[in-house]
Write a protein that binds this DNA or RNA. Structure first.
Length: 254
DNA sequence: ATGACTCCCAGTGGGAGA
């Protein structure tokens, strides 16, 4: 079983690339972030024509998430239950017996800002909800754009970016707390080359210089850990014309 | 160098992203 996550940075712009990618990389389920579409404009028919069921939770201009799956998703949840939020950042559903949770974690802008405080509150709420989800669904995958670098290996310039957004102690403590629920960073279950990222800034020739961050992450629960066969970042789409600034990440469960 | 690009909604510019 293959699962994937991709921050597409506007599905209106990236739909052709998504369909191309799915044709080359068939998956059982996939979560998308930053669709940036209200639900009425979501291209459900095009995605269904490619052989996928799809549920989504969008808004105007910003954010927006979707869950694609070969089999229909059951018990779909939009956003974090009990956490009032006008930003569309979470979609979850059960696909072929696995609880799939897709998240577009808040950016946080900079430590000390209101947006950083929101990021911390959102992460607290996510963790409290996931504790319940894991109790109800031991086979769970949490994946998406975390907007957190788990540690310095995930940063192209860990000294220059120390304490900056995505690299703060507070964010990394939140990541560790999520892992502490009984989750495992699938990418780090395998030996990986150095300097592999999932996001490269559009500016500064960052992709050409391979200056990026690994912030798109797949966490698998204890009950799934032994079944993980592989996890990889697919940087090919970042070489496309008009690419998303993020690359897809794929996990294979045996 | 508080830059550089891309997307969006706007409306001949500005916010946000990370």
């Amino acid at each position: 079983m293959k699962l994937a996550t991709w921050n597409v940075n506007s599905l209106a712009v990236r739909l052709p690339q998504l369909l191309d990618w799915l044709a080359a990389n068939p998956v059982d389920a996939m979560v998308l972030q930053e669709t940036k579409l209200v639900d009425g404009k979501f291209p459900a028919a095009e995605i269904e024509a490619a052989g996928y069921r799809v549920v989504f939770h969008g808004q105007k201009t910003y954010n927006g998430v979707a869950l694609l799956s070969r089999e229909p998703a059951d018990a779909v949840v939009r956003n974090i239950p009990g956490f009032a939020d006008d930003q569309a950042r979470v979609i979850a559903g059960t696909v072929a017996g696995i609880r799939v949770v897709g998240g577009y974690f808040p950016n946080g802008q900079a430590p000390g800002t209101d947006k950083f405080a929101y990021k911390m509150q959102w992460l607290d709420a996510l963790r409290a909800w996931l504790r319940e989800e894991l109790a109800a669904h031991p086979k769970l995958v949490l994946m998406g754009d975390f907007n957190i670098t788990p540690d310095d290996r995930d940063v192209y310039d860990p000294i220059g970016l120390a304490g900056q957004i995505h690299c703060t102690v507070e964010e990394r403590n939140q990541f560790r707390a999520l892992v502490g629920l009984g989750l495992h960073d699938a990418y780090r279950m395998f030996e990986q080359p150095l300097k592999c990222w999932s996001w490269w800034d559009y500016r500064n020739l960052a992709f050409r210089k391979n200056q990026g961050l690994r912030i798109d992450i797949i966490l698998v629960s204890d009950a799934l850990k032994a079944s993980v066969q592989a996890c990889a970042i697919d940087k090919l789409p970042r070489k496309n014309e008009r690419p998303s600034d993020h690359a897809p990440v794929v996990v294979e469960l045996g």
